[in-house]
Design a protein around this nucleic acid. Sequence first.
RNA 1: GCCGAGGUGACAGAGUGGCUAAUGUGACCGCCUGCAGAGCGGUUUUUCGGGAGUUCGAAUCUUCCCCUCGGCACCA
Length: 478
Amino acid sequence: MALKVYNTLTRDMEDFVPFQGKKVNMYVCGPTVYDHCHLGHARSYVSFDVIRRYLIYRGYDVNYTSNITDVDDKVINRAKEIGEDPFILSRKFTESFIEDMETLAVLPPDTRPKVTEHITEIIQTVETLIENSAAYVTPKGNVYYDLTRSEGRIGILSHQTVEGLLEGSGNRVEVEYDKRYQLDFVLWKSAPEGEPGWNSPWGWGRPGWHIECSVMSMKYSSGQLDIHGGGMDLIFPHHEAEIHQSESCSGKHPFSKYWMHNGFLTIDREKMSKSLGNFFTIKEVLDKFSPGTIRFFIVYTHYRSTIDFSEETLEEAGKARKRLLNTISNVKHDMKEAHEERNDCGLTELVTETREAFINSMDDDFNTREAIGSLFVFSRKVNSIISSEKPGRGALENVLRFFSEINDVLGIFAEDESNASENMNNGLSEENIMEIIRLREKARKEKDWAKADSIRDELKEKGIVIEDGKDGVRWKRM
RNA sequence: GCCGAGGUGACAGAGUGGCUAAUGUGACCGCCUGCAGAGCGGUUUUUCGGGAGUUCGAAUCUUCCCCUCGGCACCA
């Protein structure tokens, strides 16, 4: 079965066939860094991270670019509000963003271009557009894209008619703009001296929002993309503007072969966004939930569906994920006592079956929900096998290797957690813990329950959970 | 106004023509246990917003109706 992808451009499921063989140029619109990123951003970048990882898993050579919009009216306004230098502000939030992505196990892009480092190229591109008579300069020093150049192609991505678009924009005519046609969009925006900006052939100013993505995506690919991604809110006007600009500039069609858009994250069914003020930053959510839980929460939903955020849904995700983590830790535990003998107990076949199911689901437009569903089945079966039979070392290793293979794609089993019982952190070494557990065992033998329980409580406070089982005591870090 | 998404068991959420619909949470039972928690095993929902139709057969296709939600140049 071939990999299928939903393409916003055609509104259809399509077989994924890149322009050239196994090479995939992928670009995902990055954040405007005027504040800490919120969970909605996490949703987008984690979703595309999984898509990227899966393509790699399937043998594609992925070149992944994701930008940082580090100059923009929002950045400047925010800086003004709090009396800070806009460039210092954007650098600070760029760092915050990168830190969040690392925490959530989002692989760093191959290239992470910043707008401020591409001003020359942006100006060149705008010049090219003017030369191609696809753009015009106004007396005020603004440059607009001339949409009459895209006659018949307006609404190509948003699937709206010109009338519909005009009507939609009717209520909010931007009077301060001096464009010829209501739907024209700005490529270069003149700015008063003293405001952040750059010199250009049209005077002091800044790039418009859309042009940067065209410039950077084309620069770091072969001029055409296989996949262009972003949040659904970017479909119009941002991504559509990119199509017009890029194609007018390069002459290559299509600018991007596949357009992929992730669904929103809502709170009480309302879109989480900065402008509505109903957002939680990634850092805020990290105070209450582990990175693994947050990532699992996102990956557990199909990337195009809306996810409604609440503490309950995150808690549920955490519990669900724990089931899988438990199997991993159970298998690891058994490995210690497993013999070399080749007692497979059907595990190898189970792994093969599950891998097949996983790939089938993921091939279907990255259906992570269904893919994870098959992992739960796998998990249950493995638990069942290891609790009733004694599989050999090789078979257990095979299971662990499979989990790690899955983790390469989904990134939901952070090593530090699944490995918790192996490592030492929070002040207590394994030795120490074993020592304490021996003390408690002694107390238990003497039926000194009070003492045993108090030791248990004490360990719990330090984040160590004791489980009295059939064959001895197990412990793990929370 | 224009465009779009969707209504599936207590909840969340897969499934888009065919064995009385995954999976997770919850609930219940059992195992384990000094107790507890955690863990493990099992059980639970004959049902897919409503009507009509197509079909040997539909949650899945067609049509009508009802309802919810999102986008429309700030936005992941």
